[in-house]
Simulated assay, not measured.
Amino acid sequence: MQQNKLIVSCHRALIGAISTKLRGLTVKLEDSKLYWKGYFDGEPTEEEQDAVSTACTEVLADFPFISSLEEEYVNYPYPQKMDMLQFWVFLRWEEAG
């Protein structure tokens, strides 16, 4: 049940925050720690990274029991294979490479 609430929270927070360079965003909730990892197709601009980071902050506001966060944004150009943490909250369509 908690996972479903987290997915909905992430989707709501990401509305208007996804740039064309964002390939995927994966998260994992483990005890009271949230892992949040964004894969970008090229180096993200400060604005692109800030938009996704703001979405992360909005998700944290929905879950007061989360006491720690590991937030990471990586330049990971297509067609490199991305690793999923627990589940994807955003995944761009890409042709099989």
Score class of each variant (00 low, 15 high):
Met1Val: 08
Gln2Ile: 09
Gln3Ser: 10
Gln3Asp: 11
Asn4Glu: 11
Asn4Thr: 10
Leu6Arg: 03
Leu6Met: 11
Leu6Trp: 02
Val8Tyr: 07
Val8Ala: 11
Arg12Asp: 15
Arg12Phe: 05
Ala13Gln: 03
Ile15Cys: 13
Ile15Trp: 07
Gly16Trp: 10
Gly16Ala: 11
Gly16Arg: 06
Ile18Trp: 05
Ile18Met: 09
Thr20Gln: 11
Arg23Ile: 08
Arg23Thr: 04
Gly24Asp: 00
Leu25Val: 10
Leu25Lys: 04
Thr26Ile: 10
Thr26Phe: 10
Lys28Met: 14
Leu29Val: 12
Glu30Pro: 10
Glu30Val: 14
Asp31Trp: 10
Ser32Val: 06
Ser32Pro: 05
Leu34His: 08
Tyr35Arg: 09
Trp36Lys: 03
Lys37Trp: 08
Gly38Tyr: 04
Tyr39Thr: 03
Tyr39Ile: 05
Phe40Ala: 05
Phe40Val: 06
Asp41Ser: 01
Gly42Trp: 01
Gly42Met: 01
Gly42Ala: 07
Glu43Asn: 12
Pro44Phe: 09
Thr45Asn: 09
Glu46Ala: 11
Glu47Cys: 04
Glu48Leu: 09
Gln49Asn: 13
Gln49Met: 08
Gln49Ile: 01
Gln49Val: 02
Asp50Phe: 01
Asp50Asn: 13
Asp50Ile: 00
Ala51Gln: 12
Val52Asn: 06
Val52Glu: 06
Ser53Gln: 13
Thr54Cys: 00
Ala55Arg: 01
Ala55Ser: 13
Cys56Ile: 00
Cys56Thr: 01
Cys56Tyr: 04
Thr57Arg: 11
Glu58Ile: 08
Glu58Cys: 08
Glu58Asp: 12
Glu58Gln: 14
Val59Gln: 07
Ala61Glu: 02
Phe63Met: 00
Pro64Arg: 00
Phe65Tyr: 05
Phe65Glu: 13
Ile66Asn: 05
Ile66Cys: 03
Ser67Pro: 02
Leu69Glu: 02
Glu70Tyr: 12
Glu70Val: 11
Tyr73Pro: 00
Tyr73Lys: 09
Val74Glu: 10
Val74Ile: 13
Tyr76Asn: 09
Tyr78Ser: 09
Tyr78Met: 00
Tyr78Arg: 03
Lys81Thr: 15
Asp83Asn: 15
Met84Arg: 15
Phe87Glu: 15
Phe87Ile: 14
Trp88Leu: 10
Trp88Arg: 07
Trp88Gln: 11
Val89Thr: 06
Val89Cys: 12
Val89Ser: 04
Val89Arg: 02
Arg92Asn: 07
Arg92Leu: 09
Glu94Val: 04
Glu94Asp: 11
Glu95Ser: 11
Glu95Asn: 13
Gly97Ala: 15
Gly97Met: 13
